[in-house]
């Protein structure tokens, strides 16, 4: 993955579901990190990069683009029965294109703790802080 200062992801509590945040020096890296947080919520095991998947999505603004992006990642996981460990995002206005690297789910090894259903608009926010770092946050229904 791209070595980027300030890139990080985290999970935060929500009553029945799960909050994810991603941050980075660019909005694209913040989006990538938010997707990594979903993988971390599912498994503590390493995810090998044996397959590459591409996707695109659109939304009228950045907050909804984050929701659309995470929903697209969740759908790819479900349709392909895969987990993804690395992401590369490009954003042009309100259009997003991405590459995802991962491997088929191996239930005994990955021991998935939860199955994400979808990204919600609840608390969905993309912002840049005073230091210039981008933050992307939303609630995932699990």
């Amino acid at each position: 993955m791209r070595a980027s200062a300030g890139a990080a992801f985290a999970l935060f509590p929500h009553d029945a579901d799960l909050g994810v945040t991603g941050q980075g020096p660019t909005v694209e890296i913040a989006f990538e990190q938010a997707a990594r947080a979903i993988t971390a919520a599912i498994t503590e095991a390493d995810v090998a990069e044996t397959e590459r998947v591409t996707l695109t999505c659109d939304a009228p603004d950045l907050d909804l683009l984050l929701v659309a992006w995470l929903n697209a990642v969740i759908a790819e996981m479900a349709v392909r029965s895969m987990l993804f460990g690395r992401f590369r995002v490009r954003i042009d206005g309100t259009h997003l294109s991405a590459e995802l690297w991962g491997e088929p789910i191996d239930p005994p090894r990955h021991a998935p703790a939860c199955e994400p259903k979808g990204a919600t608009c609840a608390m969905a926010e993309v912002r840049q802080d005073a230091e210039g770092l981008w933050h992307a946050r939303c609630i995932i229904d699990v």
Partner: peptide, 15 residues
């Protein structure tokens, strides 16, 4: 059901 909800949620949120 998850996909139906995701898609309509975004469409309803947008317009």
């Amino acid at each position: 059901g998850h996909q139906v909800a995701s898609e309509f949620l975004l469409e309803m949120a947008a317009r």
